[in-house]
Nucleic acid binder design. Sequence first.
DNA 1: TTAATCTGGTTTTAAGATGCAACCCTATTC
DNA 2: GAATAGGGTTGCATCTTAAAACCAGATTAA
Lengths: 156, 156
Amino acid sequence: MARKRFDDSNCSVARALNQVGDWWSLLIVLHAMYGTRRFVDFQQELGIAKNILCDRLARLVENGVLKKVDVGEHGSRFEYRLTEKGRDLFPVVIALRQWGDKWNPAPDEAPLDLRDRATGQPIQTVEVQNAEGKPITVRDVFVSGEPTLGSKKDPA
Amino acid sequence: MARKRFDDSNCSVARALNQVGDWWSLLIVLHAMYGTRRFVDFQQELGIAKNILCDRLARLVENGVLKKVDVGEHGSRFEYRLTEKGRDLFPVVIALRQWGDKWNPAPDEAPLDLRDRATGQPIQTVEVQNAEGKPITVRDVFVSGEPTLGSKKDPA
DNA sequence: TTAATCTGGTTTTAAGATGCAACCCTATTC
DNA sequence: GAATAGGGTTGCATCTTAAAACCAGATTAA
């Protein structure tokens, strides 16, 4: 049988994964954030098959994560650019990168040193904060109106 | 051919996606954060096929995201609990949830109201911050030693 | 104590997804 | 006018997935 879809799931995480939760989509978004815009560049940087890239780009455009811009001075040259919705995936990508850097570091390579252009300083680790700006974990969170997260007995 | 794997990619995002980047793994982690621990509970909550769940749980255990704990008073009852590595995916999951809530809201359902246990207040939106704690976007970030992110010409 | 049930898991089967290579069409370059 | 680059589509072999059947060890029910 086919892969399941979650368009209509009542879980927003499932719906999000439906749009960017496959192997390639998030990597395409990542490279788009790096400035990649052209079909061939995505193809070469990612080492992805052309038909798959075609399909993923089309799906990302369809979902409003990318927009296809005709930059053909004469009609057949395109760029794929992030929309605001796509750019809004920034915290997701950064959080994932930091998690990867922390838990699966490259054996002989330093992690990317991302810095803020205004200050020249490295960016902070992405964290979940409470209303006062204090970092919190899974165990500190509950769903309003439901039992505490992760605490059927005792978290994890 | 099979799906590509990125174990050895020099990109930590790719390596991260290799571990939790398929359709089910992050949902399993999410439900684990909700407190789910047992095979049958995962299966019922997610509506996932048993063989796939088996495979995903095994892979998550193998990758150190979950640990399999034998709680069988007599030997054949297990729980799958988040490790610290797994719990550390919290910002990723929350960022993804917030993105989904913002851009793909459920038509007739309010998004989950997650709150901090200490203050009772809703948690903040996950964002990327610079060293001073100010929120920044893709366009504000550059890779130390490389051209500015997203600015081969002008971002997105 | 024997039967029914729960749990966690493997096997089988088919429908889908993926990767690769080959081919196409429209510019542009030489 | 031929070669090349960009952006796709098509076919095919291979791998993954979903669903359901099947299994074996514990536990509970009768």
